[in-house]
Amino acid sequence: MKFNRTSINELNALVNRACEVYLGIENDFEEVASKIIWLEVNDFGGIHRFIGLISNEMRNLNNRPELLDNKKEVIFNNNNKSLILSSHFITDIALSNWYDDKRKNIKIINARDPEALIPDLLKFTKYQFEPIFIWFSEKKLYKVHIRKNEDILYSEHKIPSLSKNDLENYIMLFSNQEDLEKYQFNPDFLEIKDKNIIQEIHPKNFLSKENDKLMNGLYIDKEAFKTMSKLADQVLVASNEQSRQGAGE
């Protein structure tokens, strides 16, 4: 596979233009672009996930999740879409709710790309929250805890004995560890939640990934770069004699 080396800023500009085309100015495309960049810099494949979206999904300007319930807990239905396009709506409501001291837990059903919540949740630490979210996928439990100073702890756990399928296909977001502890999960889950760790990514690993990209740039495979550029170039307007006058010629 051949790669293009790019700086973060250069990729950021490219992704912003691509998102502007894909989402239109009616959406906060910059927020979406910043999530893609965060995922890419932190080795969660932001560019490939985004290319997956644009290749497989019909372009839909309305990416807002459905708010199903707001009583005991806040429940969103993301309609099988990627959280890359919609997580900010959810975290906006979560932060506003927690700030008002309501501390409701957030449940997101039918959502893809849960990692897209991470960049949105970083700012929560400025409000003294240390949010934590979990999800299940292919007999694994994933847990992300954002602690003070934007420290991220990401862990992946094996769940061999967990039988209840209803734990799948949703994400639970809590304002802190205490709320997670209080939540009435399947008892099996309580047993495994801090055990059977397959993989952990510590704050220092995240910092080192970011530092590495800052120092050396990012390597994006040529095909992906080409696809992004093709999309991004759609913000450009064809040039002619008259348009050159608009540059002062």
């Binding site: 450009l236 307007v237 040039s239 348009s243 050159r244 608009g246």
Partner: peptide, 23 residues
């Protein structure tokens, strides 16, 4: 204001006369 395909140069267009206001 829009970006031209010529090196993404920013240009100024007149609405209703110049092409590109959708971008």
């Amino acid at each position: 204001w829009y970006r031209s395909e010529e090196k993404m140069e920013p240009r100024l267009g007149i609405r209703g006369i110049d092409d590109g206001d959708e971008k």
